[in-house]
Amino acid sequence: MRTYIANGWKSVKDQFYVIIILFLYQLLWGYFLYRLVESAVVPLLMRYPDPPPNQLSQALYYIEAQMGLSENSTVHAYLWILLGIGVFRMLLTPFIQAGILYGLQQEYKGLRGLFFFQGMRRYGKSIFIFHIVEWILLAAPAYWLLPRLYHVLISGLQSQLLFLNGVPYVVAWLLYGYIVHQLLLYMQFGKISGSGMVSSLWIGICNSLPIIGISICLE
């Protein structure tokens, strides 16, 4: 196990330019999101009556904030922007992933070069299909879970302790999502390395416990 990790670090070094690209990519998103949040949140905080000048002030603030979610066009604009960012990044993700996986794969074969962009071109589309499958699998439980979570949300608005009832559902969903993600990742490895998706999946399942351990340690 130790040698594998050491090899991992070596490939990281070789593909340093990819890390820089991804770092800049995330930095830019982070900056953009921060500015977006700031432009939305600061005006709201400046209007939050604390300490409340009138005993109704805070209640009215919350009622109007809640109504704003469904009725206010500025709020809607922000939600659309966030949704747009989410969709854009999700569409970009398969290509980034294809670049990384392909780079790792070529590296493993002992080759050197700018594999990141090559991988994007060569495997972007097929990884994209993996992602569509992944999104569908991730979203599927919503059909059963959303009605339950909605109930929890509504009851939680009256008594905040009731929000806890939603925790098991959310945890189960996250766990399920994590497993789906990991298994599909193995299949993507298999696809790119040409060793076959089913066998990679099998390797993934066999190795799942140590891998989960490593992932948690690295987090």
Binding site: V37, M90, L138, G177
Partner: peptide, 11 residues
């Protein structure tokens, strides 16, 4: 919070 949500589904 938003970055965590987005990051869990995308790069």
């Amino acid at each position: 919070l938003i970055e965590t949500l987005l990051g869990s589904l995308s790069w």
